[in-house]
Design a binder for these strands. Structure first.
Length: 509
RNA sequence: GCUCCGGUAGUAUAGUCCGGCCAAGUAUAGUGGCCUCUCGAGUCACGGACCCGGGUUCGAAUCCCGGCCGGAGCACCA
């Protein structure tokens, strides 16, 4: 150990890393898991769970497990479509799944442990009505079922499995300390009866009447699957306490748990029920409606998985709640997009600008990327026609609105013009000069343009789901879906479709 | 009500465990300059924070006590 390390000054641009996992030397291998209920698509609210779990597994050369927690066919009923959506989202996030499990395939395993717990007197079948049970435990008193013999409870258990108890009339409880200061942990419910004919499970149908609750299923699985680090939201804090009783009964050692705070993003609602409701009612166009913070929507808008990951790693696993702003995400994304995206002109709400007295034809070469001159160009020729030697180009309505007689503006990379007359419908101008230097010192406005005849219809869906119609330049005809480009002076967009016309989704400035 | 967890600039984060290098670093957002044939990027500068009150100490963002504020759990949900 160096007593006086020559601590160098902190490097400024140092990449932020995750804090080290506690007690890593005590485990053979780091195994983490992400365990969603497939009752909705994934959204930014799950990003911490996914990316932290996956990232820690990678950093320590461990394993990352995906486990579908689909043990509630009634209240939070899973739906078949979401299993695959979730797999796709993880793949998109570049989170490779080393092992996958589905709890609805593992019901007999939970039964086995339930039986063992009951037989050992560590769990019991409670037939009390919930209110009466609650009344007892709040006062630290056992319910009438608790002290019956294990033998009797085994018989009740068999009856539960055989259909002898209708839904709601019996529940298996794991024994805890009735004096535990937190009433919420006292003799928690582990398995319950669900009318499987009425509420068939989307995967296994009506095969099971008895379903494990979260703490039973997750608790058993975390041990059986060798999970060494549970990384989950702090709303699970008391579940950890509850599960420790289960582990003690079974002679297991509870994994290490890291509880992070809730992640929100300003203005976005990250409530699964609202998302599902809104999509089903048609309020949202789909799971990828740009107003949603689902991964599907972010992907559609050209937000990169890399940006999301970087942001989550920067935020880290601390237990404080965080409310991120979209600007923050955009900034991460912009850093990734800016160096790699080609530039094109997109004219929103086009207005025709006619320039007179153009002395000659101009061949223009517009670089695809300002910092990469070798990266290629878009080429256009503008040729004056008619007695007035006129050239017509499309410009954005917002630019046209800024024009007034006498004002000099530069059509980027083309030439300078002086405005003669401007209205919402058309702008008249006259050629002034070609050189950029001429107008640079007077700081003339630089505007983008598309030659009339070179336009390609394009609509951009904005982040509030509104749509902006306009023209993209002709070179955009060769763009393929999924390309992310920057429409200069407009923002980054992801091309969603490119056939008769271009359809794009707006990412951010 | 009971139990638990948090609180550093607009937002997020570093530092808190092991008090001094923190008159608090970084990112983003804001403002201004430079640069640039994008209102983009880059670059330089500026403004901006330790929830409050006591205590311990030569010294507290960091330790102790009290308070305030925020969040979560208290489901036969996950």
């Amino acid at each position: 150990m160096e007593k006086w390390p020559q601590t160098p000054k902190k490097e400024k641009a140092e990449e932020k890393r995750l804090p080290p996992l506690p007690n890593v030397d005590e485990v053979k291998q780091v195994v983490t898991r992400f365990s969603p209920n497939p009752d909705c698509v994934l959204h930014l609210g799950s990003a911490r769970a996914i990316l932290l779990s996956h990232e820690y597994a990678r950093v320590y050369n461990g394993k990352f497990v995906l486990r579908f927690e689909d043990t509630d066919p009634k209240v939070k009923r899973p739906s078949l479509e979401f299993y695959d959506y979730i797999r796709q989202d993880l793949a998109w996030l570049d989170c490779k799944v080393d092992e996958e499990y589905i709890q609805s395939d593992r019901i007999p395993i939970y039964y086995e442990y339930a039986k063992r717990l009951i037989g050992d007197g560590n769990a019991y079948v409670c037939t009390c009505v919930p209110d009466e049970f609650r009344e007892k435990t709040v006062n630290k008193e056992p319910c009438p079922c608790r002290d019956l013999s294990p033998q009797e409870h085994l018989e009740r258990w068999q009856q539960m499995l055989d259909g002898g108890y209708p839904e709601g009339s019996a529940v298996v409880r794991v024994k805890t300390d009735l004096n535990h200061p937190n009433p919420a942990v006292r003799d928690w419910p582990a398995l319950r009866v669900i009318d499987s004919a009425k509420y068939p499970h989307p995967r296994v149908g009506s095969k099971y009447r008895v379903w494990p609750l979260y703490n039973m299923a997750a608790g058993v699985d975390d041990h059986l699957l060798g999970i060494t680090y549970i990384i989950r939201g702090k709303e699970h804090l008391t579940n950890g306490v509850r599960q420790e009783y289960l582990y003690r009964h079974l002679g297991w050692e509870y994994p290490q748990a890291i509880h992070y705070g809730r992640l929100k993003i300003t203005g976005a609602f990250l409530s699964k029920s609202k998302i599902v409701e809104g999509v089903k009612s048609g309020e949202f166009a789909g799971w990828d409606d740009p107003r949603l913070a689902t991964f599907a929507a972010l992907r559609k808008r050209g937000i990169t998985a890399e940006a999301i990951k970087k942001m989550i790693v920067d935020v880290g696993p601390k237990p404080a709640d965080v409310t991120l702003s979209w600007e923050n995400l955009y900034s991460y994304n912009r850093k990734i997009l800016d160096p790699q995206c080609d530039r094109y002109f997109f004219v929103a709400d086009p207005v025709k600008l006619t320039v007179k007295n153009v002395p000659k034809a101009f061949d223009v070469k517009l670089p695809l990327h300002p910092e990469k001159p070798e990266g290629g160009v878009r080429e256009y020729t503008v040729t004056p026609t008619g007695e007035e030697a006129a050239v017509s180009v499309w410009i954005a309505k917002t630019d046209a609105a800024n024009m007034e007689g006498g004002k000099v503006v530069r059509l980027m990379e083309l030439f300078n013009v002086k405005i003669e007359a401007a209205s919402d419908a058309a702008v008249q101008a006259v050629f002034v000069s070609e050189s950029y230097e001429d107008v640079r010192k007077v700081r003339a406005q630089l505007i983008h343009w598309i030659p009339v005849g070179e336009e390609f219809p394009c609509s951009v869906v904005m982040s509030d789901a509104s749509s902006v119609a306009g023209f993209a330049e002709g070179a955009c005809k060769k763009l393929k879906p999924d390309a992310v480009v920057q429409f200069e002076r407009f923002g980054f967009v992801r091309i969603d479709a490119a056939a008769e016309k271009l359809e794009a989704y707006y990412a951010h400035k």
